[in-house]
Simulated scan of single mutants.
Amino acid sequence: MKIIQSFPRAILGAWPTPLQPAQQLSRYLGCPLYIKREDMTGLGAGGNKARKLEFQLGKAQADGATHVITTGAIQSNHAHLTASAARKLGLAPHLVLSGTPVAEKSGNLLLDALMESEITFVSPPAGRPPLDTINEVMLDIAAGITKEGGTPCIIPEGGTDALGTVGYILAVEELARQLHPLGLDQKRILIVVATGTCGTHAGLVAGVRAQSHSFDILGVSVSGSTPIKLNKTAKVATETLQLAGYDHAVEPGELWIEDRYIGSGYGELTEECCNAITTAAVTEGLFLDPVYTGKAMAALLDMGQSGQLSKYDAVVFMHTGGLPLLFHYDSALVSFNK
């Protein structure tokens, strides 16, 4: 931890985030459930990316950055949180969003516009990895900023790199401290998180490995290829541990990713996701999003109803944010719930 504490850090969130018991949902699961409220970080509309951005933008400030560039989907939670963090620190945000411009702004895109973020829309050509095109665009934007006398900082998609991910080593330490007075810090705990760009999942794995907790980590995939995700999560977790001064390596075969709840693709609604969103709202007054946390909760509810949680003393569900997405998917959610 001493090495992590030596890294430049811009305090962006209100820590610790709450750990709340979910008594009504616990009855559905047959196991005590706690919600780790990463959606209540206090930055922008809330979300897990604040932990990563504290270290990434801490370094950016130390390097004299004037502009922050990042990428994501049009409704990217990460892009919104990055823009929020940039504005909070007096930096100019430039978002490179995958897709075509839209006339009506809603959800995260509305919030991006309210912050007067510079936005570049990119539609990568067919037959080429989309991220290759997007990375080239970000580099071109950075070159233009430099030419005009500014100092750009590029943050990768999802904020997924070793520097940002060390924030989740600290999150595991924070969680263990919250579980201690409940008598659960040395118990068998399952931590459930949505897995997109793999950084938060990798950080949780790194945190558990660094501190030797008996916590299992389940990543519920929301997109893409599971073998690629396993390899990426293991790679980022290993790089994060090494950056933080730990002599550990994580292998793909050690990881647990559930990929049966993706549906037809990233950002596409499923019946199970909509049912999970409704169940959380009705039982706990808890609002999940259709892209990440709704699908993670769908997996968790199925596990509880099939008795797969009986070996755990408790489950911790990482609520990674995404509330603005509900206002983008509003009509689709209503259609599913008819």
Rank of each mutant, 00 (worst) to 15 (best):
R209V: 14
H213S: 11
G164R: 03
R188A: 10
L163H: 07
A202E: 06
I141S: 12
L179Y: 04
I155V: 15
G196Y: 08
I141W: 07
L184N: 10
P156D: 13
T151C: 14
G219A: 03
A206N: 03
S214A: 15
G167A: 06
V193D: 01
I141V: 14
A210L: 05
S212A: 13
K147S: 13
H201S: 02
E136V: 10
L184T: 11
Y168N: 07
L139S: 10
G196M: 09
C153I: 06
G159W: 02
E173T: 13
S212P: 02
E157R: 09
V172R: 01
V166K: 03
I155Q: 01
D161E: 14
S214W: 06
G144T: 13
L179P: 04
E136S: 13
L163C: 08
L184Y: 08
I141N: 12
A162D: 14
G164V: 02
G183F: 07
L163Y: 12
G203P: 09
S221P: 06
A143P: 00
K187M: 00
M138C: 11
A143M: 01
L175G: 04
M138V: 01
A194C: 11
T195F: 04
V172N: 05
S221T: 11
I145N: 06
L179N: 05
G203N: 08
A206C: 04
Q178T: 08
H180Q: 15
D185Y: 04
A176F: 00
A176T: 14
L175F: 05
T160L: 10
L204Q: 10
G158A: 08
T165I: 12
T146N: 11
S221D: 09
I191E: 03
E174W: 09
K147E: 15
Q211P: 01
A143G: 04
G183N: 04
M138F: 02
K147L: 14
V193R: 01
D216C: 02
T195P: 06
G144H: 13
E136Y: 07
L139F: 02
T146V: 08
A142D: 01
G164F: 02
G164M: 00
T165K: 05
L170T: 12
E173H: 10
I145Q: 09
G219I: 00
Q211K: 13
A210P: 01
P152Q: 09
V208P: 11
A162N: 09
I155Y: 02
V172F: 03
L218H: 02
I189M: 11
T200Q: 01
